[in-house]
Simulated scan of single mutants.
Amino acid sequence: MRVVTVDGRRALSFDGAVFPVPAGVSDEAAVVLGGPGVTAWHLLRTCAHLEPGESVVVHDAAGPVGALAVQLAVSFGAGRVVATAGTQAQRRAALRLGADVAVSPEPAGLTERLVEHGPVDVVLDARGGEVFERSLAALAPFGRIVCYGEPPAVDPVRLLGGSRAVVGFRLADCADRPGMVARALSELMGLTAAGRLRPCESSR
């Protein structure tokens, strides 16, 4: 993935397709938007179907996807954004990016930390394992966990109570669907050009 020049204009090359890069978006920012940005956008829009006012937990908010997901959740009208990050410095950075609450991702006591400030509607999880298990326990009725890293082992029977859902996402699955990439990039580029999204700023 890189920025190229097409007919004298900058464009982001994504798996053979090209997408325009507007003024006000640097080459570096465009590349970040094309990977972590498109991922974060689809986690919230396509997979979680985030509704305004819903609460969102973003695990690994110190990573490139997590840092963008925190910002996007705020921009999309989330009622509360809870970030998890491994160090105090990372948690403070997540708060600066817009998270309302930032907590440790350590499995012990994680469920209690996630629900301390209210019910959890959406969880973005790249870790799986115990983090997934504790997050599932925190999920409100009709809540959704979107997994985009380590695949969890899920017993469907456990999801019936509370009518909850587990959804998977891989960016590679968008490669044959350029329209999905275009929709995400259009909004991401617009938010960045307007100064409402900072793709090159992580919470590390």
Score class of each variant (00 low, 15 high):
Ser203Tyr: 03
Gly37Thr: 11
Ala172Arg: 14
Phe142Ile: 06
Val70Ala: 06
Leu33Asp: 02
Gly118Tyr: 09
Gly143Lys: 02
Arg127Gly: 09
Gly86His: 03
Gly190Ile: 07
Met180Leu: 15
Thr5Tyr: 10
Val21Asn: 01
Ser55Lys: 08
Gly143Cys: 03
Val56Thr: 04
Ala193Thr: 02
Arg204Asn: 13
Ala73Pro: 11
Arg144Tyr: 06
Pro107Met: 00
Pro36Ala: 13
Asp7Ile: 09
Gly66Cys: 04
Gln71Tyr: 09
Met180Ile: 15
Gly86Thr: 07
Glu187Thr: 08
Gly24Leu: 08
Ala194Ser: 14
His59Ser: 09
Thr5Gln: 15
Ala194Lys: 00
Thr111His: 12
Pro156Asp: 07
Val115Asp: 03
Leu197Lys: 00
Arg164Phe: 11
Arg45Tyr: 13
Arg92Met: 12
Val115Pro: 00
Gly190Val: 07
Val81Asn: 05
Pro22Phe: 01
Gln90Asn: 11
Ala99Phe: 08
Glu112Arg: 07
Arg92Lys: 12
Leu159Tyr: 10
Asp100Thr: 07
Arg96Asp: 15
Val21Glu: 02
Gly143Ser: 03
Met180Asp: 15
Thr46Leu: 13
Gly109Tyr: 01
Ala23Asn: 10
Ala175Ser: 12
Ser135Gly: 14
Gly37Ile: 04
Gln71Thr: 01
Ala85Asn: 05
Thr111Val: 06
Val123Gly: 00
Arg45Thr: 14
Leu171Cys: 10
Trp41Glu: 00
Ala85Leu: 03
Gly63Glu: 01
Cys47Met: 14
Gly53Gln: 01
Ala48Glu: 07
Arg144Leu: 10
Ser55Cys: 06
His117Lys: 00
Leu44Tyr: 07
Arg91Val: 09
Ala193Lys: 01
Gly195Trp: 06
Ala138Tyr: 04
Gln90Gly: 15
Val122Gly: 02
Leu136Ile: 09
Arg10Asn: 00
Val25Asp: 04
Leu160Lys: 15
Val154Asp: 01
Leu95Ser: 07
Arg204Trp: 15
